[in-house]
């Protein structure tokens, strides 16, 4: 039986359909903030696992790939850096725990660790206060997280017993709508006055589950909770006020600046000049913008006729590979940039 890291990588390879090298897998799971990776996440429907292993190492990747090859679950294409899933790989994948459906790395990979850090420390702090204990070692060493909880408690002057009660209610409400496993894993990770949270390894041994699987179930819990809090924030007043400052735009800083210039009516070349960046970079920004907002008008950069042409070729070839599309178009006037824009806009439609 495959371990869950192998499952995740097998799943990613399957989704890539032999169109990306193993380094794309590496960047995908690490959550690399490059236009290529961001675009791939959307094209290949991998937004769920995007950035779910921020500390992923090349060695981990290479070892896992090697292992998958030994099991005959994947096989190398002509080019040794590209792998495709085999029949027995498909069968293995069908037998394993499915990829958590509520996972959303693309949207929450940055927010989830901060959310967890704060929630974890808030619970520990409240637990001690309501038990009349003021001295304790914070389980979160990150000073930013420590400061934000300090601030949070200063701003919310509410009676602490009441706050603990509210936190309990909001959390049980969120947990009750999750599976047994999710509930148990989440609460086992918590630290309070008479208990220190368990490590993933300890939980996996107690529950007799694969450690990577435990990590993913926990992550899914966090992502789903974040989505629920965002959706019905009036119902989760305490939790939503804990992360209010985190729900900013999902564009990278530099892309936000580019967006402001575009909205001010500047052309891409002008923006590149003003910002002393390459035009290529500004184009990357635009693709990122379209990925986040499919309604963003692109007619300034691709005429609707050209857009249609590109879509036709995509459909015909059933591929998302830029090179193949461009070759098939046989029209020197259509640039890679234009194809990427259309791909970004088409998203999962293909």
């Amino acid at each position: 039986m495959a371990n869950y890291l192998q499952v995740i990588i097998l799943h990613t390879i399957k989704k890539f359909q032999g169109e990306r090298s193993i380094y794309a897998i590496y960047h995908m799971l690490q959550g690399k903030k490059s236009s290529q990776t961001i675009q791939d996440a959307h094209l290949f429907r991998l937004t769920n696992v995007f950035g779910t292993i921020p500390h992923f190492t090349r060695k981990q990747l290479v070892d896992t790939i090697q292992n998958l090859v030994e099991h005959d679950w994947i096989t190398a294409k002509q080019n040794s850096d590209v792998f495709i899933i085999t029949q027995s790989g498909e069968e293995e994948l069908a037998q394993c725990e499915p990829i958590p459906t509520r996972l959303n790395g693309w949207k929450y990979q940055n927010v989830a660790p901060v959310f967890w850090g704060r929630l974890n420390l808030l619970i520990q702090t409240l637990s001690h206060i309501v038990h009349n204990e003021t001295k304790f070692y914070p389980i979160q060493r990150n000073t930013k997280i420590q400061q934000s909880i300090k601030q949070f408690l200063q701003q919310n002057r509410q009676n602490r017993e009441l706050m603990a009660q509210h936190l309990y209610e909001e959390l049980t409400d969120l947990l009750e709508r999750q599976s047994d496993r999710h509930q148990t894993i989440f609460v086992r990770k918590l630290t309070g006055i008479n208990r220190v949270g368990q490590t993933f390894d300890q939980i996996s041994k107690t529950m007799q589950l694969d450690e990577w699987y435990v990590r993913y179930v926990f992550l899914e819990s966090l992502h789903w909770m974040l989505a629920e809090i965002e959706k019905t924030f009036t119902q989760y007043r305490l939790l939503s006020s804990l992360i209010r400052d985190l729900q900013q735009s999902r564009l990278t800083q530099s892309t936000q600046t580019t967006l402001q210039f575009i909205q001010a009516g500047r052309t891409l070349t002008e923006i590149a000049d003003i910002r002393r960046l390459k035009v290529n970079t500004i184009e990357d920004h635009l693709v990122e913008i379209v990925l986040v907002d499919k309604q963003f008008p692109i007619d300034k950069y691709v005429t609707s006729a050209v857009e249609e042409k590109i879509r036709q070729v995509m459909k015909k070839l059933q591929t998302k590979q830029l090179k193949a599309i461009r070759q098939s178009l046989a029209d020197e006037a259509i640039s890679f940039f234009q194809i990427r824009l259309v791909l970004a806009k088409a998203g999962d439609e293909l």
């Binding site: 619970i123 409240l126 637990s127 309501v130 038990h131 017993e161 603990a164 009660q165 936190l167 309990y168 959390l171 049980t172 947990l175 609460v187 918590l190 309070g192 006055i193 008479n194 208990r195």
Partner: peptide, 8 residues
């Protein structure tokens, strides 16, 4: 467990 942590 959660109740005991938060003294509910």
């Amino acid at each position: 467990e959660l109740a005991s942590i938060l003294c509910i």
